[in-house]
Every structure is written in structure tokens, then in C-alpha cells.
Computed example of a mutant assay.
Amino acid sequence: MATSDVFSYGIPAESDFGYAQAIRSGDLIHVSGQLAFDETGAFPHPGDFAAQLRRTHANMDRVLAHYGVTRSQIVSQTLYVVDLGRHAAATAEANLAYFGDHRPAGTVLGVTELTLPGQLVEVAFVADTRLPA
């Protein structure tokens, strides 16, 4: 597989956990759970759900840009949310704002905890390059 088919930010978590942010397989781009890392790999918003979701969406856009695809080519997503009852409305509102009129398949799971202390949200997704941008 060509190196351009794999995308990484070059942050410590990738080598610590042994994963890539995304990998292209044919026409599909499989994206690992995105969270609120900044450009250096730091996690600047522990406990702040709204800030984490904004940064997570920005990181999703970084992956999409690497492959030259858009949000409208996302076919499915899985959201992991700590304290989903408390954050359900904000999750739905942010999802609608992020996707506009596009409607990918989606699953939202309430979880007890995520990898980092204070991490409240993570989003994994799949994009299909055959869809119109």
C-alpha cells in the first residue's frame, strides 16, 4: 500500500497506541476515532464538551482535506459520548451544524469513559470517495 493511503498527524498517541488516523481502502476512507487533540498532540480542553466537539470536527476536516474529500462524502459515523444524557442535545445540535443537509448513517453510544482524562467525545467515520463532493 502506498504511503499516501495512510494518514497520521505525527502525534505521540499514534506511536504509543500503534495506529494511523486514517487509511484508504479502495474507494473508502476508514477514519480512527477523532478527538480534541491540538496540532502538537496536546489535549487542551478536558471536561469541556462543546470545545472538544468543535476541535474534534476540525480534526475530522483535517483528515478529509488530506484525502481531498468533503463532509458530504461521509457515509457513516460512530460517536462515543461520556454522560450521553447530559450531552445528547449538544451532540445532536453540533451534528446538524457540521453536516448541514447531508445525512450519513450514524450511531451514538453513551460510554463510561474514553482514553484521556476529561475526554468526553470521540468520532470515528467512513467516507466514500465515489459520492459527489
Rank of each mutant, 00 (worst) to 15 (best):
R130L: 04
E14Y: 05
L114I: 11
G118M: 04
T56A: 01
L120E: 04
T70C: 13
H45F: 15
G26T: 08
E93Q: 15
A124Y: 05
G106A: 13
L84V: 12
G100H: 03
H30F: 10
G33Q: 04
D61V: 14
I11L: 12
M60L: 03
A124I: 11
G18E: 02
R54M: 02
R71I: 07
G85L: 03
T3F: 15
A124N: 09
V31A: 04
V123F: 04
L53G: 01
F49H: 10
P46S: 09
Y67G: 01
H102D: 09
P46C: 08
N95K: 13
T3W: 14
P46R: 04
V108E: 03
V108P: 00
V82T: 06
V126G: 00
Q119D: 06
F43W: 06
T91A: 13
R130T: 10
A36I: 00
D5T: 11
F125Q: 04
G33T: 07
R103A: 07
G110W: 03
D38C: 02
V108L: 06
V69K: 00
D48M: 02
E113V: 14
H102V: 14
S15F: 14
D27E: 13
V69W: 00
G33R: 04
P46F: 03
Q73N: 05
D48K: 08
N59A: 09
Q52E: 02
T129K: 09
Q119S: 07
A58K: 06
G85S: 11
S32T: 10
H45A: 12
V126I: 09
G110Y: 04
G33C: 06
A22Y: 00
L35K: 14
S8D: 15
E113Q: 15
F7Q: 08
F49N: 12
V81Y: 11
L28K: 02
A105K: 14
G18M: 05
A22Q: 01
Q52N: 04
A20M: 09
V6N: 10
F37T: 06
T40Q: 12
V75Y: 05
T56Q: 00
V6D: 09
A20Q: 11
H57A: 08
S8L: 14
E122Y: 02
D61T: 10
E93C: 08
G85A: 08
T112R: 12
A42L: 07
T56V: 00
S32D: 05
N95E: 14
T70E: 12
A127W: 00
V63C: 03
G68E: 05
D16E: 15
F43K: 08
A20S: 15
